[in-house]
Amino acid sequence: MNIIESNIANLPTRYGKFKIKAYKDGHQEHLAIMSQDFENLEAPYVRIHSECLTGDTLGSLKCDCQSQLDLSLKFIAKNGGLVIYHRQEGRNIGLVNKVNAYALQDNGRNTIEANLELGFAEDERDYRVVGYIFENLKIKKLKLITNNPEKLKYVESLGVEIVERIPAIIKSNKYNEAYLSTKKEKMGHLI
């Protein structure tokens, strides 16, 4: 991996004051969003948040992404830790293909069926940069904020100790009920 790193900068937000550091891996740029006390934490709370422009920025009700990011940033601001903003849009199929997947979902496909119909695996994400960020920030143990069993497996495969798993449970709505059901029943999410 040929990663380019930024310096650490301050980032005051509506959630609290953070520090940020950017990592560039090929054409993708990722963020580490750290609480002010991050360096002093032996086992920080960590959220690996996969980018979702439609949810995170536009407030889409078709997913739970913005709600999970909001929950995580509030939690980290209060309790200390790190949010890794993992820039792999649409489970790493890109924005154009994600919108195409939305169109297929509008016609009755679930998220997995839509990805498969477009010629992708159900989840194309590559977490290697997360491993690099953990190493760079000297994370040996953590408390992982996730519902995704694949993220748990990946973190464990790095030899990073998961002290605790914190669920990121949000309220469903009429637009994301099928999406959340697919995540739970077909992808094994712990919701």
Rank of each mutant, 00 (worst) to 15 (best):
L53K: 10
G55L: 04
G55P: 04
T57W: 11
T57H: 14
L58F: 14
G59W: 04
K62A: 06
K62I: 11
C63Y: 10
C63F: 02
C63I: 10
D64E: 13
C65D: 01
C65M: 03
C65N: 07
C65H: 05
Q66R: 15
S67R: 06
Q68L: 09
Q68A: 06
Q68M: 06
L73V: 01
L73N: 04
F75M: 07
I76N: 02
A77C: 01
N79Q: 10
N79I: 00
G81K: 02
G81R: 03
G81I: 00
Y85N: 05
H86S: 01
H86E: 02
H86T: 00
Q88H: 04
E89Q: 10
G90A: 02
R91T: 00
I93G: 05
I93S: 08
G94T: 08
G94P: 03
L95K: 12
L95C: 12
V96Q: 13
V96K: 15
K98A: 01
K98I: 08
N100F: 12
Y102G: 04
Q105A: 09
G108L: 11
R109H: 15
N110C: 12
I112S: 03
I112G: 02
A114W: 09
L116P: 03
E117F: 11
E117A: 15
E117K: 14
E117H: 13
E117D: 15
L118W: 05
L118Y: 07
A121G: 15
A121T: 14
E122I: 14
E122P: 11
Y127D: 02
Y132R: 11
Y132M: 07
Y132A: 00
F134C: 01
F134I: 07
F134G: 05
E135C: 09
N136K: 10
L137Y: 03
L137F: 05
I139L: 08
I139E: 01
K140R: 15
L142F: 07
L142I: 09
L142W: 11
L142S: 01
K143S: 07
L144Y: 03
I145T: 01
I145H: 11
T146A: 10
N147E: 09
K151L: 02
L152P: 07
L152W: 04
K153M: 14
Y154I: 10
V155T: 04
S157G: 11
L158D: 02
G159V: 12
G159F: 00
G159L: 09
V160F: 06
E164S: 12
R165M: 11
I166K: 09
I166Y: 02
P167D: 12
A168I: 03
I170S: 11
S172E: 11
N173S: 12
N173E: 06
N173T: 12
K174E: 08
K174D: 08
K174C: 08
Y175G: 09
